[in-house]
Simulated assay, not measured.
Amino acid sequence: MKHAMKLHWSPRSPFVRKVMIVLHETGQLDQVEQVRSVVAMHLPPNAAVMADNPLGKIPTLVVEDGTALFDSRVICEYLDHRAGGSLLGDRRFVQLRWQALGDGLIDLLLLWRTELSRPSGPWDAVTEGWRAKARAVMATLEAETPALAATPFGLGHVAIVCALGQLDFRWSDANWRDHFPQLAKLEAGWAARPSVAATAIVDDAPDGADVTAGKLRFNG
């Protein structure tokens, strides 16, 4: 079967997961060839990814005319536009703001984990700042659960789903649901969506012990 597009993909990446949820939500999954692509800060650049994206990052989407799109925000908006724009709808900037919160939390968690894995040890002043920001983002989302619940599922919700999924995947001992119960209730509803259930993070290439255990606390 010939696909219209090619996606550099990993089942471990929260940003790739954003794209996959959008593909499911917009009915475009069968139009994309998923190419398993390994990239990491501590590894040499992936030559196949670099051929399409000079930043060497995933997700990267190559569309019908050969143009490569990156990052996840651009890809998701492109796919939504291609399918009629239902995931941004008439509350575009509300959704984009929530997307920025979700993406920002993902970025923070990914950088934090890399910092914790340094042989010389993490820079505590930096990680303390990330801890404060993670708490603030989660508190903001908890406060905005009425608005999130009242707004049709869109790109902002997708990003938040993926950020919370990253907490579950890499920071499970943070027990975020105990501290943000309204957000947890909302997330349980999102988790039942077919697009979310079908794209759950899979650790297909475990990289050793979880360096983040005990490092993110929401209670003190």
Rank of each mutant, 00 (worst) to 15 (best):
A51V: 06
I58N: 07
C76Q: 03
H42Y: 11
L69Q: 04
R36I: 15
P44F: 10
F70I: 01
V62A: 05
R36H: 14
V38R: 13
I58W: 05
V39N: 02
V63H: 11
D65G: 00
V74D: 00
T60F: 01
K57P: 04
P59G: 07
V35F: 03
P45W: 10
H42D: 15
V38M: 10
D52L: 12
V62Y: 09
C76H: 06
G66Q: 06
P44W: 08
F70L: 01
V63G: 11
V35S: 04
P59D: 03
V49G: 02
D71E: 15
N53V: 02
L69H: 07
T67M: 10
A51R: 12
M41G: 13
A47V: 10
A47R: 13
R36Q: 14
H42M: 12
K57L: 14
D65M: 10
L55H: 11
L43T: 07
S72Y: 03
L55D: 09
T67K: 13
D71A: 04
L69Y: 06
P44G: 09
M50T: 12
V38E: 14
P44R: 09
S72K: 03
H42P: 02
H42N: 15
P45H: 11
R73G: 15
S37W: 01
D65R: 04
E64V: 06
L55E: 07
G66M: 08
V63D: 12
L55A: 12
V38T: 14
V39C: 10
L61F: 07
V35P: 05
A48R: 09
D65F: 08
P45N: 09
L43W: 14
A40F: 09
I58K: 08
E64A: 15
T67C: 02
D65K: 04
A40C: 06
S72R: 01
P45R: 11
N53Q: 05
P54Q: 12
V63L: 06
V49W: 04
H42Q: 14
M50A: 13
K57H: 06
M50S: 13
D52P: 02
V74W: 05
A48M: 00
A40V: 00
R36K: 14
L69T: 08
I75F: 01
R73N: 13
S72M: 08
L61H: 08
A68D: 04
L55P: 00
D71H: 01
R73K: 12
M41F: 15
I58C: 08
H42T: 14
P44H: 09
A51T: 08
P45F: 11
V62D: 08
A51D: 13
C76A: 12
S37Y: 00
N46A: 04
A47N: 01
P44Y: 10
D71Q: 03
D52N: 11
A40E: 11
P45K: 07
P54V: 10
L69P: 07
V49Q: 04
I58R: 05
V49N: 04
D71T: 02
L43F: 14
A40H: 13
S37R: 02
M50N: 05
F70T: 09
V38G: 00
P44A: 10
L61E: 05
T60S: 15
R73P: 01
S72A: 12
R73T: 15
L69E: 00
A40G: 14
G66V: 10
A68C: 02
D71C: 04
R73S: 15
D65E: 07
V39E: 00
V39S: 03
S72G: 00
F70P: 03
H42K: 14
V74M: 01
T60Y: 06
L69R: 03
M41L: 15
F70M: 09
L43G: 00
M50R: 15
